[in-house]
Amino acid sequence: MSLSTVPPAVVDAAMPAPRRRTRFGTARRDYITIGLWLALAISVLIWSIPIIFMVFTSLKSEADIFGTPAFVPPWSPEWGNYVEALDRGNLLGAGANSLIIAVFKVPIGLLISAAAAFALSRLRFKRQRLLMGVIAMGAMVPIQVAIAPLFQVINGLDLLSTHVGVILPYIAFGLPYQTFILYGFFRSIPHELDESARMDGAGNWRLFLQIILPLSKPALAALFILDFVATWNEYSIALALLQSQDSWTIPLAIQGFQSQFTSAYGPLNAFTIMSVFPVLIVYLLFQRYFVEGAFAGAVKG
């Protein structure tokens, strides 16, 4: 990322060739572009400090952490921190819990939301808009408003510290936003499709499963990825409902490791890095869906 590796010509080549009138104009525009690029490069560097700092620490021995300045790279990487983190914290167990919860929660929640959005957008009944409004409101109320009684509900069902016991509330709290986004998306699908499908004898279910859902793949994919990440990262519901250490998800395990081994900075940072790895991979693989998801929200929201 050193500055000299990007000659002005490269920056220039990336620009679509606008019609340039004078030599003066060209030169000025280039300077502005280069200045902007430099400013962005410096900002990105500053933005990366927390991550760089964490990675460096995770690879330093205790002596190096205490003895060298924070931004000195770990010249002799101490991979033992990672081994120690795996050994001391229950990373794999927590990872398995998080994965099981996400694998069930995300598709089921999405299907339920899609069905509701279908009824709200493609079928007709009274007070339809009001119902959509009431559901959408759920997306805006902080979870903490309901968390103590929610604990009682799950406790009453005898589902504390179980996978099902968090999957159900996760589905419920994910519904409002997903239904709202899919409602907007479904409404943008032309109604003529419904009419011709019905003329061919399709009922509501066939219309939903064979026409609306396949046409909504982009929105569904975007929501799927966003929801996977959100589920993986969720902390406050899990904190209230997952009491036994065996049932902890990744965020609880991070926090648990942190409070248990407060001064084991190397392993702690190694633990955090390993815990965010799955999400980073998902992000890098499905990057474009994040943008599309944001887009759906921004345009339809």
Partner: peptide, 13 residues
């Protein structure tokens, strides 16, 4: 996309 609790740990450090 990072878990807020992970971010909290990074910044605490």
């Amino acid at each position: 996309v990072l878990a807020p609790i992970a971010i909290a740990n990074m910044w605490r450090w």
